Amino acid sequence: MRMNIILFIDSLANGGSQRQLVNLAIGLHQRDHCVTVITYTPLNHHLPRLEAAGVSFECLNKRSKFDLRPVIRLYQAIRRLKADSVVAFLRTPALYAELAGLLCRRTRIVVSERAGITDRGLGKEHYLSGLGHSLATVVTGNSHHYLDALAKALPWLKPKCQVIYNSIDEQFFENGKARSQLEQPPSDSVDSAQSSACRLCVVAARPSEEKGLLPLINAVVQLVDRGITDFSVHWIGPVQDTHPLVSKAQSLIEQHSLQGNWHWEGEQSEVARCYPDYQGLVLPSLHEGVANSLCEAMASGLPVIATDIADNALILGDSGCGLLCQPDNASSLADAMQALIQLPQETRTAMGLSAYQRARELFDEKNCLPQWERVLTPALH
């Protein structure tokens, strides 16, 4: 059944939710649905991908924080495009879509929660957005951990809740396939003198407290103090030198002479090309949903070290593809990093193969897109 689908989000900035929405738009378009992506803030990092795939795009240009015209304009777009379904990512776009849906009762309003929660549980903002979801047809999320907490707090939402994990572009799986065929993947960008050291990457859209930047640097300090120096950590993502957290991090790096073990790699336009240069991923987040970098690294055949938050334990399971550590705990993180660094290369390669196979099971578009189609198809509900 061919559907007219609107995918709605604040912008196409360089964020994980934006990347996931673009992946979904391209995947649904390739499955012969009529897809239009609509935003209201003109930040268009991912727009070239949509244009290359032939996906329609509109920007509603919200003028101020409390400008509610995007609700009316979204309603008008629903009518003009004869949309069967609207999928809204993130909290504010979800609210706008839910309000617009009051005027379009035949259109399915599907909201997608991408948030994580702290160990203190749901906050006031989660309850408020959950109340708004009473107006939605379906509430999706990329984390059992979050949706279970939401349904427990607001039981009437439980029948609407549906977990759909992030889908990963095939180019990441091509990395994993290539790595599985080689004992040690070649890399033109890695100096041969460094090839024996274990290179670990962190991929983050921004350096922030919830991304675990400072616990990670303190873990690196502990490793060096233990006499473990044959490794390096590479932070991939935009970094502003004037950001207070980055300044504090840089002070720690200089104070402990970590310049040989820590590298700011900056923003990369083609993240998929980065993963083959590394032997593992570190995900030190304190709280978030299911991270794109976790899914992408596993698909690329990298063993992972991840904090025990959200669905990370469920995703890694007993597959042998990674190690868990406690969030906001530099010693626990250092222990996990030490364990991975000191493994023989062939063991890390075997872990990476397990990660690739687990990612195929959970994050392959061939599995994720049919789940979205079932959610979006009125005839099945």
Results as ranks from 00 to 15, higher is better:
S180C: 03
A313W: 07
I109H: 13
A83E: 10
A310M: 02
L314Q: 13
H29L: 12
C321F: 02
P276L: 07
A193Q: 01
H126N: 13
L294E: 02
T36K: 10
N367P: 00
L102N: 05
S331E: 09
H243M: 07
R360E: 14
L90Q: 11
G320N: 09
S251R: 08
P303F: 11
D311T: 03
A53F: 03
Y146V: 06
L369G: 05
C34W: 11
F231D: 02
L376E: 03
S354H: 15
P155H: 07
N4H: 14
L369P: 09
G320I: 14
Y96S: 10
G130I: 03
Q222L: 13
D335P: 07
N367R: 09
V233N: 02
G322N: 07
F89Q: 07
Q326N: 10
S180D: 01
G141F: 06
Q76C: 14
I253M: 04
D225T: 05
G301W: 00
G15T: 10
P159N: 01
P70W: 13
K124S: 10
Q18H: 06
A77G: 10
S293A: 07
R19P: 00
H46N: 11
D169P: 01
V271N: 01
T307H: 08
P344V: 14
A100W: 09
V55N: 04
I78A: 03
N175Y: 00
N4C: 09
T307F: 05
R206T: 11
G352D: 09
A136G: 06
Q20K: 07
A334R: 05
Q268C: 06
A97T: 14
P378Q: 00
V221G: 00
P207F: 07
Q181I: 00
L24W: 11
R120H: 15
L216I: 11
I315Y: 05
S300V: 04
Q279M: 07
F8L: 14
L216A: 05
V139M: 15
T36Q: 12
A136D: 09
Y127K: 12
K248W: 08
C368S: 02
Q268N: 03
L182R: 04
L214G: 08
A299C: 06
L147R: 05
E58M: 08
G54F: 06
L216E: 02
M1D: 08
R179V: 02
R374D: 09
A355D: 14
L154Q: 07
D119M: 15
N142H: 04
T349S: 14
L343M: 15
C321M: 10
Q194R: 09
L154H: 05
Q268A: 08
D67K: 12
F172K: 04
S187G: 04
H45P: 04
A25K: 08
V221Y: 06
I109W: 14
L128V: 12
V87L: 13
L157F: 05
S354N: 15
L376D: 00
R273P: 08
V37T: 13
R120D: 15
N367Q: 09
T41I: 13
C104Y: 08
A88S: 11
E365Q: 10
L213T: 08
Y165H: 10
L147D: 07
G320L: 14
V246G: 00
H133R: 12
A306G: 02
V233P: 03
M298S: 01
T349F: 14
D10K: 13
L102I: 09
L286G: 03
H144T: 11
